[in-house]
Nucleic acid binder design. Structure first.
Length: 224
DNA sequence: TAGGCCATCTGGTCCT
DNA sequence: AGGACCAGATGGCCTA
């Protein structure tokens, strides 16, 4: 177990045994001054809409300046309820992030990297995947183009026999079967975008680089 | 030691 | 009401 894993485990352990003492509420970040807390005059509790009654504003004059045992117990119950809800929410959030990380790991596993490469960071994984998909798409497009030239005559006859509706497609859909590769490229090729994640080379340069890309090679870093 | 990366907590918002 | 999602804050670990 790596030191990092260990520390995470320790943190998880700490979370498991999260102190739910009734004396303090770490999740209560409402602006309750110590004076307010001490007097328990008013402490907004947010989503519960729970407030300690302000004696000066309370319609129940008989309880002015006092909190019954029932109120105090009710108060504790609500604080406990809040803590439990927070703990459960934290747990769900942790699981959600773990699932997200698992998905990122699966993505890393299908990306071409050398075994001795350091693990891709999250942002590197996403950018590399983006560029890798783009490269594969371009490869397919070029392959299709070659086939198209060879079989131009036969395909021409096939296209002429297709209904016109087949060509009226939604180019925003990656699953569209009838969109032309050139239209698709103009929409989605990193070369058509201005962000700094895009490859700076032409497709020819890109394909001339050996795959898989070495993480620390010049070619790799240019595509991140 | 500064900066990058990461895990976790937290409160807010939206959705079912 | 409760869960999912999100973004900001925080603190730990690692590396140049």
């Amino acid at each position: 177990m790596s030191p990092k894993t260990e520390s995470i485990q320790q943190r998880n352990d700490r979370d498991l045994y999260y102190d739910v003492s009734e004396d303090e509420d770490p999740s209560c970040s409402f602006p309750c001054s110590p004076a307010h807390s001490a007097s328990s005059e008013y402490c907004p509790m947010g989503e519960e809409g729970f407030t300690f009654s302000n004696p000066r504003e309370s319609p129940h004059k008989k309880q002015k300046g006092k909190r019954t045992r029932f109120q105090a117990k009710n108060e504790l119950t609500i604080i406990k309820q809040k803590k439990n809800r927070r703990i459960k929410a934290n747990d769900r959030e942790r699981n959600r992030m773990h699932n997200l990380n698992s998905a990122l790991d699966e993505l890393r596993n299908v990306l071409p990297t050398f075994p001795d490469d350091a693990k891709l960071t999250k942002i590197e994984t996403l950018r590399f995947a983006y560029n890798y998909i783009w490269a594969l798409s371009e490869t397919l497009r070029m392959a299709d183009h070659s086939i198209f030239n060879l079989a131009h005559q036969d395909m021409r006859e096939t296209f002429d026999s297709l209904p016109k509706s087949c060509f009226m497609v939604d180019l925003t859909s990656p699953n569209s079967n009838c969109s032309s590769s050139s239209d698709w490229e103009s929409l989605y090729s990193p070369l058509s975008q201005n962000d700094n994640h895009s490859p700076t080379h032409s497709m020819d340069d890109f394909i001339s680089q050996p795959l898989p890309f070495a993480r620390h090679s010049a070619s790799f870093s240019e595509f991140l």
